[in-house]
């Protein structure tokens, strides 16, 4: 115990600035992706454990999800995801999430995993949440296998009216990221880190098992480039079947709409479906991307 405290103490004392960037780790949840990420801040199931912690407060049951697949349909890329969320009780809701992405090109490998712990609670009519994560990356791309580690912290806030017509969610990605140097026992705040803020709005209505929802979202990275992600999505629920569609684009919108034509990192058209059978749910997404890589994911969720 003393050793652990000493370790933590050293971690906290040796808090210096480092230059790096946060690990890429975003392609995880089919439900969110199927709306082209437009629902990422207001998603009300266990998938939000990877995104907006504030939405955890609205989940009414225990939920768990698993997903396994090749996120880019590329040989050598595999992803495994698992998450569990605890419904709001005793004044808080929480989740624990794990994701692993491994890549291999037969010569080099990169394996990274992430563990996220999130908590949320109500503040007035809003839900607020915080999230702390630990990310590890091991690769041999630079020669001998080397492992690097990061810890990160993010926050979120969400609002939902009593009839669930309007939901608004805002959360950060990579708000604070620090490298963990196990050799020197240092935590180095990443000075060149590029935080992002996601804003999602959902307007929806449900009547006797038939419902619809439209989503819109903006994701802005606080870098020197004036680009942004703009997403829209829709969802149609027919009793136990959900059909989703989304469109997202990343461009430097300061150049006007023409920027979409040539300064685009991605344009994503997504189609997704989910089906509830008893307490199980299967979500599937296929993302057509004329600029970047297509994605295809499937997940299994359960609740009790």
């Amino acid at each position: 115990m003393k050793k652990t405290l000493l370790f933590l103490g050293i971690f906290l004392v040796l808090y210096v600035i480092a230059s790096a960037s946060a690990f890429d780790f975003r392609i995880i949840a089919p439900g969110v992706i199927s709306t082209a990420y437009s629902s990422v801040g207001v998603n009300e199931d266990v998938e939000t454990a990877f995104y907006n912690p504030a939405m955890l407060s609205y989940i009414k049951k225990w939920q768990m999800m698993f997903s396994y697949g090749s996120p880019f349909n590329l040989y050598g890329t595999n992803e495994f995801v698992a998450a569990i969320s605890q419904p709001y009780s005793y004044g808080f809701a929480g989740s624990l999430a794990f994701a692993n992405l491994s890549l291999s090109d037969n010569e080099n490998t990169d394996s990274r995993w992430m563990l996220l712990y999130s908590l949320s609670g109500y503040l007035s009519s809003f839900s607020i949440g915080g999230q702390i994560g630990y990310v590890s990356d091991t690769n041999d791309v630079f020669g001998e296998p080397e492992q690097t580690r990061q810890i990160k912290g993010d926050v979120g806030i969400a609002f939902k009216d009593s009839s669930d017509i309007i939901r608004v969610g805002v959360f950060t990605e990579d708000l604070l990221v620090a490298d963990v140097d196990m050799e020197k026992w240092q935590v180095n705040l990443v000075k060149d880190n590029c935080p992002k803020v996601d804003l999602s709005v959902r307007i929806g209505y449900n009547w006797k098992g038939i419902g619809f929802a439209v989503y819109s979202g903006i994701r802005k990275a606080f870098n020197t480039v004036a680009d942004a992600d703009v997403m829209v999505g829709g969802e149609l629920q027919l009793w136990n079947v959900s059909l989703r569609v989304g469109y997202g684009v990343n461009a430097d919108f300061s150049k006007g709409l023409n920027a979409v034509n040539y300064d685009t990192a991605y344009q994503r058209i997504t189609l997704g479906a989910g089906i509830d059978v008893s307490n199980y749910r299967i979500d599937y997404v296929y993302s057509i991307d004329p600029v970047s890589l297509p994605q295809q994911l499937i997940s299994l969720k359960m609740e009790w």
Binding site: D24, I27, F72, L101, A265, S292
Partner: peptide, 9 residues
Amino acid sequence: IFDLNGRKV
């Protein structure tokens, strides 16, 4: 070249 989010670089 893509990043590990699948975005074209």
